[in-house]
Design a protein around this nucleic acid. Structure first.
Lengths: 214, 214
DNA sequence: TCAACTCTGTAAACACCGTTTACTCAGCAC
DNA sequence: GTGCTGAGTAAACGGTGTTTACAGAGTTGA
């Protein structure tokens, strides 16, 4: 969207927008924040609508909600989740990852954390262990995740949400994001006639790999 | 890049470009094709440099090559792998997925096909089976993949590259793409100080899940 | 009451963008 | 020589982000 079109929609002339935003970049940045807020509200509403279902169902619902939102708002998805720093300004006071992390990310990730934490014994699904150089990063993320989960009721201690589990949460995000982006951008290696089924199947496997039964 | 800047770089004036391209969209589309050709050449060179190593090492090398390329060329990556149809023209004679599929996709996917085909007994890694609605799509992709693999020497029959294996190849692409895009766009949920190690770990798990030992 | 000030908006201009039109001019066939 | 074609240019059009100068409305203070 162009600056003038936005101004026209508000019933204002383009230069008047500069009273509220420093530049087009600044406007996009704030738009980005608003989108994240809306998205997280939407996903939280989905969780709320789930009621007392098992956590795995809630994860399922949120993942589907994220996909539906992305497909319904490809421009917003591109802006928030697939734009380089030069689109939105590299020298922002807050770095970009925080935007995703603070607003939307929490919804999905803390839910994933709850899911894993609720699982009795998260046995390491692979024999490969996490490389040493990731220890610090994962520990930091573990802290964020645990406090986020505990904010929403449950009591989770670091031992039930170990390093392997944290890595798995990140991998879930990689797959969720990967599928949704591929679908939004139409970059699957062949024509997928029922992407929803493929998505559901992937999420089912993801949840299954944590230890839940499909 | 602007049309006038491109013209300036070629030592030409902007309208002269319209002798060669119908529009900016058309130019981007052809640029897209060129980028795909370059990338696939680069990845094929990596495979060639591998010599007679085991296929899993070749997959590893190609994945790392793809990541390195994407991080070195974020604009090109965005154009080819993360742009919606409105950026590049929706009503193109060839649909977009073919571009990725025809040029770059083959390199990675046929290698993945070779890897799985070379594996003795691809036991289904999960209890979840592939939904019925994907049968036709996966069968079509299986055909493409098998002919692509057989073009490069080996003799692969449909039974060794079954539906579950095909699904797994697609899932590998989802994860490879997901991680690379997240890194290019800086959208991991926390600051990753050594993304390369994380990437390597993911690829190692991916290969391990097929049945190879890490 | 009236002057000063701020806040919000506009009009005009600037440089740049993609694109079209009209024109030039070299090279070549006959 | 006379056309003709291909490749290039200059000029223009509407649109863009952005800056500057200006206008009025509302508030404040003496």
């Amino acid at each position: 969207m162009t600056l003038r079109a936005i101004a026209r929609e508000v019933g204002i002339t383009a230069p008047a927008l500069y009273r509220y935003y420093d530049s087009r970049e600044d406007l996009l940045r704030q738009l980005c924040d608003d989108i994240c807020t809306d998205l997280s509200a939407e996903l939280n509403a989905i969780i709320a609508a789930c009621g007392d279902t098992v956590v795995s169902d809630q994860v399922f619902a949120v993942c589907r909600g994220f996909r539906r939102w992305a497909l319904a708002h490809p421009q917003e998805f591109t802006l928030v989740f697939a734009s380089t720093e030069d689109t939105i300004g590299a020298h922002a006071p807050r770095e970009r990852p925080d935007v995703v992390g603070d607003q939307f990310g929490r919804v999905f990730l803390q839910l994933a954390g709850r899911l894993i934490a609720g699982h009795p014994a998260p046995d390491p699904p692979t024999g490969t262990d996490v490389p040493e150089s990731l220890h610090d990063d994962l520990a930091a993320f573990q802290k964020v995740l645990i406090t986020a989960v505990n904010e929403h009721g449950a009591e989770v201690t670091p031992d039930v949400l170990g390093e392997e589990a944290i890595f798995h949460v990140v991998q879930c995000w990689v797959r969720l994001y990967g599928h949704v982006a591929l679908e939004v951008f139409g970059r699957f290696p062949f024509a997928v006639s029922d992407p929803g089924a493929m998505f559901d199947s992937m999420i089912r496997r993801m949840i299954g790999e944590i230890g839940f039964q499909p």
